[in-house]
């Protein structure tokens, strides 16, 4: 029963990851990110209930607090302030990205196969999905032209890592987890300031303007 629930959550994670890859609007992207956080929290609760690891409840609580409520609020505030609720521009068109994503998922499952066989946890089947979520988020970072979706990709990647940790070893030690959460918060803070500065300097958040920052050697 629990194993099936966990598998359900894992497939939801993967689905949301693909949805994020296909999503063109920043506002929807933030909603999807919040949903992913929620699924992650539910998954943590299920695992905690099944295995009796009390720490995972705490981790689920923090996930809800930070990734479902706080960060999406901050991001919404940011895009309102910066007035960038327009369409996401991608470097590669969406269908191609999706195809690349499928290849990545196959690769991730292939990669996770031997590890899952070794692991004795109830969640072992979901390791492949966790790796796939990380890789898909990375792919999103690469294929987006604007800065905000890249940040969301970065956060989604962190979700994937979290998920991988839960599925492989029932979560990281609490200290590490808290440390990562703190890092993410500080990172968002810095990036928020950074966005304003970038727009100030270039009148746009398009990253191609930053290409001229490199050493001129041509």
């Amino acid at each position: 029963m629990s194993a099936q629930l966990i598998n359900l959550m894992a497939s939801l994670m993967l689905l949301i990851a693909f949805a994020m890859l296909a999503q063109r609007r920043i506002r929807s992207l933030i909603y999807l990110f919040a949903w992913q956080g929620a699924v992650l929290a539910v998954n943590s609760v299920i695992v905690a209930w099944y295995t009796g690891h009390g720490e995972l409840y705490l981790s689920a609580f923090f996930t809800v607090l930070l990734k479902v409520i706080a960060l999406p609020l901050v991001l919404h505030y940011l895009i309102r302030k910066l007035d960038i609720q327009w369409d996401v521009e991608t470097l590669i068109n969406i269908p191609t990205t999706m195809l690349a994503g499928i290849v990545l998922v196959v690769f991730a499952f292939n990669l996770a196969l031997p590890i899952s066989q070794l692991a004795g946890t109830i969640t072992r089947g979901t390791l492949g999905i966790a790796i796939a979520v990380v890789l898909l988020a990375f792919l999103m970072m690469i294929t987006r032209r604007k800065a905000v979706p890249q940040v969301i990709g970065f956060l989604a990647m962190e979700n994937g890592l979290f998920f991988a940790a839960t599925s492989a070893t029932y979560g990281m030690p609490m200290v590490v987890e808290l440390g990562i959460l703190l890092d993410v918060m500080v990172g968002i803070l810095i990036l928020g300031i950074f966005f304003f500065q970038v727009r100030e300097a270039f009148d746009s958040l398009d990253l191609k303007h930053m290409e001229k920052l490199k050493e001129s050697g041509e």
């Binding site: 470097l91 890789l135 990375f138 792919l139 970072m141 690469i142 294929t143 032209r145 890249q150 990253l207 191609k208 930053m210 290409e211 001229k212 920052l213 490199k214 050493e215 050697g217």
Partner: peptide, 16 residues
């Protein structure tokens, strides 16, 4: 120096 394009996407691609 050719590696250094100044495009964040390419740098991310290198890591990827």
């Amino acid at each position: 120096g050719i590696l250094q394009h100044g495009r964040i996407h390419l740098y991310l691609l290198y890591s990827f």
